[in-house]
Design a protein around this nucleic acid. Structure first.
Lengths: 281, 281
DNA sequence: CGCAAAGTTGAGCGTCCTCAAGCAGCGTGG
DNA sequence: CCACGCTGCTTGAGGACGCTCAACTTTGCG
């Protein structure tokens, strides 16, 4: 049953062995410093970047820029792009840097609702009410493109492909959130962390980054609230994953994680969801 | 494996004339029986349904109908509106009946991702990939309006308010999902159930229904996968809530629940999230 | 009536949380 | 230069909450 296709992760993400991003503009260079593989180690010199000359997300950004006025804005680490309760009028596109979206409740509970970066949109949450219901925080230095919601609507009305692109972006966020919710609701703490790493690696792969050495830009606490577990549990899960060889800690720091084999990681997640065999019922 | 839904008619995507055993005017009447407030308690006879003459969601539906061709379709209980993996071309609007959206993973894990009804959209999940990544199942008999994604886009390009309405609808789903994820990630099992009832009651209120006696149309198992807990825990939580007087079971069945005081329920949720006092940090 | 599905309740156990201590990296300032 | 504080991370011990397994009741439907 459902042997076809991967449901959670649609369009089978290709896993580029190790591809370095390429500097396009000065800011992108800055991003490279922050985000790119810092060591040319496994970087075999054969520096061609997988899909053509530039990743997909960059083409999307270009298209936006052609059709709707954007103002580019540099964001420093820990700076808030927008804040819960603020009136909504702008949408944002992440050009470089990584951002966390924090959703919070009236009684103080909070959770990392999402992590976004290259080419991702931020701010949709403000559309229904005209007020932001989340807070967006930069985990890195980065650059965002800000555009007026009104301008975007006007442009989208004239350009069908742009409209489709926006709808696709929102729906993709919806699908992604549902997948993580599925992960939270069905997996053990350790498997959640593994699944998180897997999903993050796939996101990197979609942007043409390498996946064998990834950097999680967030703290254990961020990951914890994202996955619905305590930061201690995240830490424990990571060490156990490292002990079993599915991941490895890089010498550069506790947030640089090596993933020798993505499929091994994927298998680990699945093995957790099927305790014994799967011929139940 | 163990799909909650009945595997009987898998791709029943055809739009069958549906030999429904109903008289000529059946749909509206049927909807009234199923969904409308059954007792005229807060309904004072005169046509004053809280906000104006008809609930908001109905005005939205009317607007859609004016601008884009819709085909109305009767759905029977347990029928699948669309199915995981199916090619996406239509969006749906729930006119009557309650539907659950089930998201599933390649290894068989599944979860109720959402519950939707009057005026809610279904099917956005298919936009990014052109294939549905969820399955929509009717919990009731109901009626949906089907419209082509392409038609909607064209109409939205011509009518700004329609475009805004669609974007609002998707974003609202995004926000709602984030809120339930917050609930799952931060609350105890009992509080999750309480929060779920609260949210469901609020959804009903938005549609002009009464909130002091609500009907959860889903099974304990559905609620369980939605909240990331087992169905036994749902049952236990409900009985405990009833024992403490925050809710009551109605004589009509185990799915009819009385909520004497919404604020008491709300306070219960908050009390769970703040074990001691709330002057953290 | 009888079967199947939904729901309730209980006992035992495991996972994860809580609380706590200790360590590592880092910028500041004496 | 190192002490210092701060933040992030790790690891441990004990306990609570929710899961598993199981029996039973209730509801719904042919």
């Amino acid at each position: 049953m459902h042997a076809t296709a991967h449901p959670t992760q649609m369009n089978a993400v290709t896993f580029p062995p190790n591809s370095a991003p390429h500097p396009v503009d000065p800011l992108a260079r800055l991003r490279d410093v922050m985000d790119a593989p810092r060591t040319p180690v496994a970087h075999t010199g054969s520096g061609e970047d997988l899909h053509g000359c530039q990743p997909h997300w960059r083409a999307s950004l270009d298209m936006i820029e052609q059709h709707v006025p954007v103002s580019k804005r540099l964001i420093r680490t820990h700076e808030q792009l927008y804040t819960f309760g603020q009136p909504f009028e702008m949408l944002h596109l992440a050009n470089s840097g990584v951002f966390k979206i924090v959703s919070l409740a009236s009684d103080g509970r909070e959770r990392s609702a999402d992590f976004v970066f290259n080419g991702d949109w931020l701010g949709f949450d403000g559309i229904p009410t005209g007020q932001h219901t989340c807070t967006a925080v930069a985990l890195d230095i980065g650059e965002v493109w800000a555009l007026r919601y009104h301008d975007l609507m006007q442009a989208a009305a004239k350009t069908p492909s742009l409209l489709h692109q926006v709808l696709t972006a929102i729906s993709a966020q919806l699908a992604r959130n549902r997948n993580t919710a599925l992960s939270i609701g069905t997996l053990s703490a350790e498997a959640r962390v593994a699944d998180f790493l897997l999903t993050w690696a796939r996101s990197l792969a979609e942007r043409g980054r390498r996946t064998d050495e990834i950097n999680v830009h967030m703290t254990r606490a961020d990951i914890g609230t994202f996955l619905g577990i305590r930061l201690e549990s995240v830490s424990r899960a990571l060490t156990k994953l490292a002990q079993s060889g599915v991941i490895s800690f890089n010498e550069r720091g506790r947030r640089d994680i090596g993933i020798p084999d993505l499929y091994a990681l994927s298998r680990f997640v699945q093995s957790d969801s099927e305790p014994g065999d799967c011929f139940l019922q």
